[in-house]
Design a protein around this nucleic acid. Structure first.
Lengths: 203, 203
DNA sequence: ATCATAATGCAACATCTAGTTGCATTACTA
DNA sequence: TAGTAATGCAACTAGATGTTGCATTATGAT
């Protein structure tokens, strides 16, 4: 996983005002991201919106990009909630909804924009990998529970199933600009889950 | 579909020099995109690289963004080649490879960046929708042929299958920064195609 | 071939934004 | 409460962005 210290200078007085300033700046940056997107982000506007002087931002972060990076590290770790309805299909539909709302919010979009626009940045790569690996590691229990219930074969790879759903949702939202309706979710979950039932043992 | 005229001023002498200028500028823009990404694109550098004066670019396109948009319209319509190997799985693996290489080229990345960073632009939305709709409409014949061969049930939606593969590839490249190996492609194609065979008719 | 003029080239300019520096002020924390 | 880390502030530099007027080139109609 990626740590705060790796991109930020160490501070000798991280508490009190500094902490408030950081929170205000990150909050402002996220709002700006949501409103204007990363490409037209400016330190001046983040400063104005957060009520912090731009000099401070330049001194602590150095650039608007690093503010966004910091915001990603700060908030990106809040994962999706893991549903547990007792039914694999329903769990996956819930997860799909979470993914959909997660990627449309400013942080999710910023992460996507960063990854696309900065294909060679190792920091971004590690950030993305860390984020999704963690998400899928947590979410695979959805499938593991279904295996335990005997609803699907034990050979099924939970990570793959979950990633498949996330990928479909991501693509629809990002690339197709489509709505993620419950009907559509049920459809893709249905075709994904289809044929996973364990073979009937005859002996 | 989106037309050139919708974003570009009509010219009274579109041939000869004007056409050469446009080609040079779009080519330069694509090279710049590949090297620096959209976020750090500048009219000055496009002008320098294409050997066209920056005034001309400002007069004809107005901004670097519109140059990129024009480039997308100009080249984005070149679709993926549609494979025809006689086997559904193999066709889909080929298609996956095309999608993967399509993403990494500058135009694909620019389109992705545009879509993500400009969620409210109707022009971008229509461009994206037109692009993908066309791709999937063309690619669904892969599945239709398999249906005709009797390899899969006629109820299967070719568009969904194709989109599913494209989505997995995009997600892997963009979000996970993973390699798209043949082995991985065969794996996801396998799990997608699994269970599509027509029920054996008994009469 | 010729000619009106569309399109581009060119230089100089105005404007705006990004980022810096020196010093004053605030407020952590030892 | 004293030392100083962190921020606020204003003025500045540098550089990129976009504009304007005029000269030059080349297209397309005659």
């Amino acid at each position: 996983m990626l740590h705060y210290d790796e991109i930020m200078p160490s501070m000798k007085r991280p508490g009190g005002r500094s902490a408030r300033v950081r929170a205000a700046v990150l909050e402002g940056a996220v709002l700006e991201l949501g409103e204007f997107g990363w490409r037209s982000l400016s330190v001046d506007r983040i400063a104005a919106r957060s009520g912090v002087h731009k000099t401070t931002i330049y001194r602590r972060w150095g650039s608007a990009d690093r503010v966004v990076l910091d915001a990603l590290l700060d908030r990106g770790s809040e994962g999706f909630p893991i549903p547990d309805t007792g039914d694999l299909g329903e769990d996956l539909v819930c997860l799909g909804r979470s993914v959909a709302s997660g990627i449309t919010d400013p942080i999710g979009r910023a992460l996507a924009a960063a990854i696309i626009d900065e294909p060679d940045s190792p920091t971004i790569s590690r950030l993305a990998d860390a984020f999704w690996s963690q998400q899928f590691e947590e979410a695979r229990v959805i499938v593991d529970r279904a295996i335990k219930r005997g609803d699907v074969a034990s050979s099924v790879d939970g990570g793959q199933i979950v990633e498949s759903i996330a990928a479909r949702v991501w693509f629809r939202v990002m690339m197709r600009r489509g709505e993620v309706t419950d009907m559509w979710l049920e459809e893709i979950v249905g075709s994904t889950v289809e044929g996973l039932s364990p073979a009937v043992e005859r002996d």
